[in-house]
Structure formats: C-alpha cells, structure tokens
Amino acid sequence: MYRRILLAIDGSRSSLDALEQAVSMALATHAEVSAMFVVDDNDLLFEISPRDRPWQLADVIAYGKRVLAHAGGRLSAAGVRWSSRLVKTPGSPAKIAAAIIAEADHWSADLIVMGTHGHRGVQRIVLGSVSEHVISKTVRPVLLVRRQVGGDTR
C-alpha cells in the first residue's frame, strides 16, 4: 500500500517516535523512506535577546544534519531503503508545512509521517501548528505521532 513514506523529523521526542513508526510501516510494506529536516528559526523567536540566542542558523543546520544522520542510521539498521534531505525554509509554521507538502508532492510520497509537539498557550497562538497546516493543506494521508508520556522537549 505505502511505497514511499516521507518522514518529517526535527529531533524532538515525538519526531523520534515518528521515526519508529516510519520504520515499522516501511518494513511492513517494503516502502522507501525519505527523511526530511526543515531548518526554521521559530525557536529563536522566544529568546530573550537576539544576542543571547544559543542557536544560530549554522547551529540549526548542523543539528539538522545530525538528526538526519541519526534517522539514516536507524533506517539502515532496520534494512529500510532511505534518503534524506535538509530544507532551508525559515519562517512560520505555514511555510514549514508548505515545504513538507512540496517535498511530499515532488517525491510522490504515499504517506507523510511526522511527530506533533502539542504546544499550548502563547507558543500555540504565535506559532500555530505545523502538523495542523500539513493535514489541512495536503491531499496525502498523514500519520501524526504524539509523545504520550512526559513533555516533548528538544
């Protein structure tokens, strides 16, 4: 049924759970997985002062490469065919979601798998939800994976 699974991963606990779901589904259906990391600066919006930011853009890119390498290692260990892509699209959740959807369309994904953070309060009002934007704008099936135990932190 699923031959091409797009995994949107950001290194959060919920996205690592999504990685495990993608591995399971790929093994069950003999699918190929494309892991994708979108570089965004949303986390930087909540820093007290721009000069105090612990994450600069180069750091986020390096982090994304490590996340994709980890995902690739897990997929390889499971015997799943895979590829990865780091996409630089800083901006709003809608723009990040658009980048995920564009990649799914370009790659002809049969399924999008991603974690959901479950932000609440001010962060949710300001940032919105990438996963909500994806499910409302794509015509492709989406599997959302939410961390059930504890908080979802990076």
Rank of each mutant, 00 (worst) to 15 (best):
L6R: 06
A8V: 05
A8N: 03
I9E: 03
D10C: 07
S12R: 04
S15P: 01
S15T: 11
A18G: 10
V23W: 02
S24Y: 07
A26E: 08
A26T: 04
A28G: 15
T29V: 02
T29Q: 11
E32W: 07
E32Q: 14
D40K: 01
D41E: 11
D43V: 11
L44N: 15
F46T: 05
R53K: 13
R53S: 15
P54E: 12
W55F: 14
Q56Y: 05
L57A: 13
A58G: 11
A58N: 10
I61S: 03
K65W: 07
V67P: 02
A69Y: 02
A69L: 12
R74C: 10
A77M: 01
A78D: 04
G79F: 01
R81K: 13
R81M: 08
S83R: 15
R85L: 15
R85V: 15
T89C: 08
P90T: 10
G91Y: 01
P93Q: 09
K95W: 01
A99R: 01
A102P: 00
A102C: 06
E103V: 03
S108P: 00
D110F: 07
L111C: 09
G115K: 03
H117K: 11
G118F: 02
R120W: 01
G121L: 06
G121V: 03
V122P: 00
Q123T: 12
R124T: 04
V126M: 09
V126Y: 02
V130P: 01
I135K: 13
S136D: 11
T138F: 10
V139R: 14
P141C: 09
Q148W: 02
G151K: 11
D152L: 04
